[in-house]
Structure formats: C-alpha cells, structure tokens
C-alpha cells in the first residue's frame, strides 16, 4: 500500500479513505497538510491560528470524503479554498475582538539552522510584516501566486473571482509589498549596487 499510495492521485487517496483505508489519510496529510499550513501561516501571520485553520480545513476534507466525485475538481484546490475562507472568517472575528492579528509578526521558522535563521530571519520577518499590511484578498492572491506558485486560473477558482481579478490583485499586492520593503533595504542587507 505505501508504494501505491505515494503514486496515487489525491482523488484516489480520498476515495480510499472514504472506503475505510486509514493509510490514505496519512498520505493525504503528508501531501496536503504542509501546503495548507504554509498558506495559513502567511495569511494569518500567527502560528497557533494557522494550526487551527489547517486542522479545521483537513477535518472538513475528511468529512466531505464520501461525497467527493473524482475528476470534477482538484482536492488541493478545494482545500485551499476552505482554508482561505477559514482565514477570512477568523480575521473578521478577530477584528471584532481586541486582538490585532496583523500587528503580530511571524515567529521564526524552526526548520532552519540558527545561523540561517539569523541571516534570513530578518528578511522573512520583513516580508511577512509587509504581507500583513496588504488588504486580505491581495495578501491571499500574492501568497497563492508567489509563494505557492499556483496558476492564475487555479487561484481564481480558489478565491471565486475572475482570472483578471487575480492578476489585478497580485500586481497591486506586489507593488505595495515592494514599496513597503523599499524603506528597509539597508536593514535587510540590500545594497545600492
């Protein structure tokens, strides 16, 4: 099963899971979990929030498995869409409370060595801080396009907007990010050369 599970499509794994194969869940989690978590981290900006979004999105995937119709859509697209909607819901709820999530910087990535973290940490923190200044939809579009490297049509499907709207959001988002980072060039180690 392990060899065939690695070769199976997300579609097939979801059907296997719905039919009672628990190993399919492990493979799907290994494949899709990090992608959802990565996007949620960038969009939410807080690890604990990103973890909650990831777990909830995956839970919805498990519950939806028996109704999944293979071939009609990509599992990853469906999951990204659920995750993005969960992020928006949480942001809205947070704005109604007392916590300003956008003001909290991303914690350093624990997967890197200490030296690398010191070197790259400042730049990645700056990128995250600049991302958090973007309007919600721009941030989602930029993260999906430039960090997840999804195609514009796929992002359009995830965000339920036209491809042209995706292009517009990402272009405006990139300009805003570049402007936000321009004032920190020296701090981030970029020289005028």
């Amino acid at each position: 099963m392990s060899a065939s599970a690695e070769e199976a499509s997300d579609d097939a794994l979801l059907v296997l899971y719905a039919n009672g194969d628990s190993r399919a869940a492990a493979e799907l989690t290994a494949r899709l979990g990090p992608r959802v978590f990565g996007v949620a981290m960038r969009v939410m900006g807080i690890r604990a929030e990103a973890e909650d979004v990831t777990q909830e999105a995956m839970l919805r995937l498990w519950k939806m498995a028996p109704e999944w119709r293979p071939g009609e859509a990509q599992v990853s697209t469906w999951l990204y869409r659920v995750a993005m909607n969960l992020c928006i819901d949480r942001k809205r709820r947070a704005r109604g409370g007392h916590v300003d999530l956008d003001a909290v910087p991303e914690p350093p990535d624990p997967g890197r060595s200490a030296a690398e973290q010191m070197q790259d940490g400042a730049r990645q923190d700056a990128l995250q801080a600049a991302l958090m200044q973007l309007p919600e939809r721009q941030r989602q579009a930029v993260v999906l396009r430039h960090l997840e490297e999804l195609s514009n049509p796929e992002i359009a499907g995830i965000m339920d907007i036209s491809t042209e709207a995706v292009e517009s959001l990402t272009a405006r988002g990139k300009r805003a990010l570049a402007a936000a980072l321009a004032g920190r060039r020296e701090e981030l180690g970029y020289s005028d050369g």
Binding site: T29, G111, L127, H146, Y190
Partner: peptide, 30 residues
C-alpha cells in the same frame, strides 16, 4: 520588484514544516 522576487524565492525554498502535534491531531480527526 526584483528584490521582492528574491524574497519570494527565499520563502519558497524554506516552506514551514507541518508540526508533529498538528499532524497527529489531523490524523486523529481522520
């Protein structure tokens, strides 16, 4: 914009790993 592209590339090269406790919680849900 080029420096921004470099930052994106750096971020892509080190995607966050799924924490073990989160992976376990997801599988427990499944």
């Amino acid at each position: 914009l080029q420096e921004l592209e470099d930052l994106f590339a750096e971020a892509r090269s080190a995607p966050p790993a799924l924490p073990d406790h989160l992976s376990a919680a997801i599988l427990a849900d499944a």
